[in-house]
Write a protein that binds this DNA or RNA. Structure first.
Ligand SMILES: [Mn+2]
Ligand SMILES: [Mn+2]
Ligand SMILES: [Mn+2]
Ligand SMILES: [Mn+2]
Lengths: 220, 220
DNA sequence: AAAAATTTTTAGATTTACCTAAAAATAAAT
DNA sequence: ATTTATTTTTAGGTAAATCTAAAAATTTTT
């Protein structure tokens, strides 16, 4: 039986490993809101259980077993988020914290039935892919809005920032999942991006654009 | 913020208090699967937080505040059970353990929306009443099947035993919530009860009959 | 009303997940 | 190649929830 805390560590390490191969102690500490010394303690425990490979001072990587466990938690997190949005009418900026709790409920049966009840969704309210029961999922092929050139277009299919403030902001701008956009200009001065969405011309800061993920129609 | 453990103690004390006014240390220990010494420690903590009234060697009673907290957990437990049965097609004997975990999820918003999603159910899959958001609920007026006399009838509206074994047994006998029954005989030898249900005559042990709750039609 | 049995509490440890402060290792800058 | 800065680990401690063994209070029996 894996503890609530162990599960959180595994998930955080998994997400950090998407960026850098070797995950550092301080990075984990920051994410998990704890001190580096505590992280070292927990890492030793996870290594003891063969969930991570650990070389002193060199950071950690998840073992196959650890990766499986982490993906399983990610699966639960995202399925619960779908449930909250699709069935309980939560907004996409309101679901993360509750899902953080729900993802630790233990029953396998529960999550399989929930998956079925939701119609086996492929992605969560933020466009992130939902692993199937074997932990498999298609690697998403999104590009950042900031990588588009003037004249390029595509569909908003994800976000790389899940803070409530950011998501609320996008909602207000009408930049939700599925919307078609086209880049009409990029301001030299501050790098802000002018885009065309649902017939309107709007300007968004580079900071915002950076976290909007686009799937191009393959036409560019 | 109340811990998982504190919540479990409050709920157990609440349920025990339905039987006896002053709840004893050993009774709590048995229910919570721990040792009396541990219970004493926790009781002191709960008393410190004004959740229970405690007199050494005299057991505990919930304060108004403690009762509120306990009823809130019971509400969550029962709503989740309804969700599992109505939406995820769990059987009534499969839901208790998962609900034990789900009842500790913290968001108030979540539970209000879940309540609405389920259509504000008044009772759970075992016939137990679901408190509303203010903790109010009608006191159920069931009688035990064993209290019926020969010729008396009524509707099965609850059970006072939630073990999977018991519930599966009832299911097999066709004794589920809502079924009309009538007592046709009581065996002198072992006190077993012969009942008429959906046209069939069946015999159930006194032990089983004791845990079946009946609402009479007021005709007796 | 004493003695015996039961229940409850205290005392002292253990485990898990943290912490702070200081030491050790690694990386970056001069 | 040293020195300096940063990162990571160790050492030693704390709080929550548990435990065992023993003491104290209460209840039951004689
Ligand atoms: Mn999330
Ligand atoms: Mn998400
Ligand atoms: Mn239950
Ligand atoms: Mn129930």
């Amino acid at each position: 039986m894996r503890s609530f805390t162990e599960e959180n560590y595994l998930k955080i390490i998994y997400h950090l490993a998407e960026k850098t191969n070797n995950v550092q102690t301080n990075a984990i500490a920051e994410q998990i809101q704890t001190k580096p010394a505590s992280v070292t303690d927990m890492i030793k425990k996870l290594a003891e259980k063969d969930l991570v490979d650990y070389v002193k001072y060199q950071g950690v990587t998840l073992t196959e077993k650890g990766k499986q466990a982490a993906v399983d938690i990610v699966r639960k997190h995202r399925l619960w988020e779908v449930f909250l949005v699709d069935k309980l009418n939560f907004k996409w900026d309101e679901v993360h914290d509750v899902a953080e709790e729900l993802e630790h409920i233990k029953s396998v049966d529960l999550i399989e039935r929930l998956d079925e009840f939701l119609g086996f969704p492929k992605s969560d309210p933020h466009g992130d892919p939902i692993p199937d029961k074997h932990g498999r999922f298609a690697k998403t092929q999104f590009i950042k809005l900031t990588e588009l050139k003037i004249g390029d277009g595509g569909t908003i299919t994800g976000v790389s920032q899940h803070s409530s403030a950011f998501l609320k902001h996008l909602e207000k701008l009408g930049l939700t999942l599925g919307k078609q956009i086209e880049v009409s200009d990029v301001t030299d001065f501050d790098g802000s991006v002018e885009i065309l969405v649902t017939g309107k011309q709007i300007n968004i800061s580079r900071e915002v654009a950076k976290h909007i993920l686009i799937s191009t129609n393959g036409k560019n």
